[in-house]
């Protein structure tokens, strides 16, 4: 799918409100693209436009045909009595006649979608019995049942817990790899996007979209420019802490224990510095970590932090 000089926005009686100007973007086959940008920048509008649900203000975009895009939107479904199975069935509607009777192939594609998103245990439930996360999974299954080469998802991982977020992104990734689908995901999950996306579309405040692979955009500072991070260092992936205790500590140790101890110290306002005089060393005894300062030893980081104040 590709766009040429696409102008996206919405039209009121008096004038056009342009959200994106002169977009020339490309969504290649088998590619997972994460579409990022601040709230209100127009991500949903662009997705609706590319899905053909809304007219562009100018320019053009090419998609294979009008049945080649499936969407997962943020629109609420109000039909409490609808079953999960019925909702997934909607994915087959573009291919059904007026009586909406399902063929064997339709049933197979629906069952396949159910398997992919692991919904077997809840297919008979009604929508009011589902959690937000489960409902999101069902909407994704509906879009998969549509069996389209292109998939647009508008914040599919909002309301989901970490496990489900990772699972959704993994499913989308494997759909790109194995089924050759092109997937565009609007998301605010920076960490997940950086780890899964083949390419990033980054909406800038000046109504453009920057396209690039995640690592390039991190290193050349584009992310920092767009998001204006406050207290977050993208290159290390950590929050920046104020060293309000004005104390430096020399931490000796290795592996995960070292990293999490450093995290705890920085979170509590200490600076971790190799040249500092105060030495905290981590050793291991019978498979358990032990923290020591001078002659005192502690069995947990909590103990360490509480006693550190005395030194």
């Amino acid at each position: 799918m590709s766009t040429t000089n696409l102008v996206v926005g919405y039209r009121t009686d008096k004038k056009d409100h342009i959200l994106f100007n002169n977009l020339s973007l490309k969504l290649r086959q088998g590619e997972l693209v994460c579409f990022m940008g601040s709230n209100g920048v127009g991500k949903s509008t662009l997705i609706r436009t590319l899905a053909g649900l809304q007219e562009p203000l100018a320019g053009a975009f090419e998609i294979p045909n009008d049945q080649s895009v499936a969407v997962v939107l943020t629109d609420r479904i109000n039909s409490a009595l609808m079953t999960v199975y019925d909702l997934i069935t909607y994915g087959r509607y573009p291919y059904l006649n007026w009586k909406v009777s399902l063929s064997k192939l339709d049933h197979e594609l629906i069952d396949h979608a159910i398997q992919l998103v692991h919904l077997e245990s809840i297919i008979a439930k009604k929508l009011f019995e589902l959690s937000d996360g489960q409902l999101q999974m069902v909407m994704i299954a509906k879009a998969l049942a549509q069996n389209t080469p292109i998939l647009f998802l508008d914040e599919p991982t909002a309301h989901l817990d970490l496990n489900n977020r990772v699972e959704i992104m993994n499913i989308l990734r494997s759909l790109c790899r194995t089924a050759g689908k092109s997937i565009l995901v609007a998301t605010h999950e920076l960490d997940l996007a950086l780890q899964t996306a083949d390419s990033i579309w980054l909406a800038t405040p000046d109504r453009k979209i920057i396209e690039g692979i995640p690592e390039d955009l991190v290193l050349d500072g584009t992310f920092d420019q767009v998001f204006q991070f406050k207290g977050f260092d993208l290159k290390t992936g950590k929050m920046t802490h104020e060293t309000f205790r004005k104390t430096s500590i020399h931490l000796k140790g290795e592996g995960h224990t070292y990293l999490w101890t450093k995290n705890a110290l920085e979170r509590n306002g200490y600076e971790v510095n190799e040249k500092a005089p105060c030495l905290v060393s981590i050793s291991e005894k019978n498979g358990q970590s032990i923290w020591s300062i001078e002659n005192s030893t502690f069995k947990t980081i909590k103990d360490l932090l509480e006693n550190l104040k005395k030194f």
């Binding site: 899905a51 629109d75 479904i77 509607y93 009586k99």
Partner: peptide, 22 residues
């Protein structure tokens, strides 16, 4: 009775219904 398909689709709202080529 001839409107079964669009009626069912309306339940999902305009955007989804349009995406289902209604």
């Amino acid at each position: 009775y001839g409107l079964i398909k669009p009626l069912n689709s309306w339940l999902l709202g305009e955007n989804y219904a349009r995406n289902l080529t209604i």
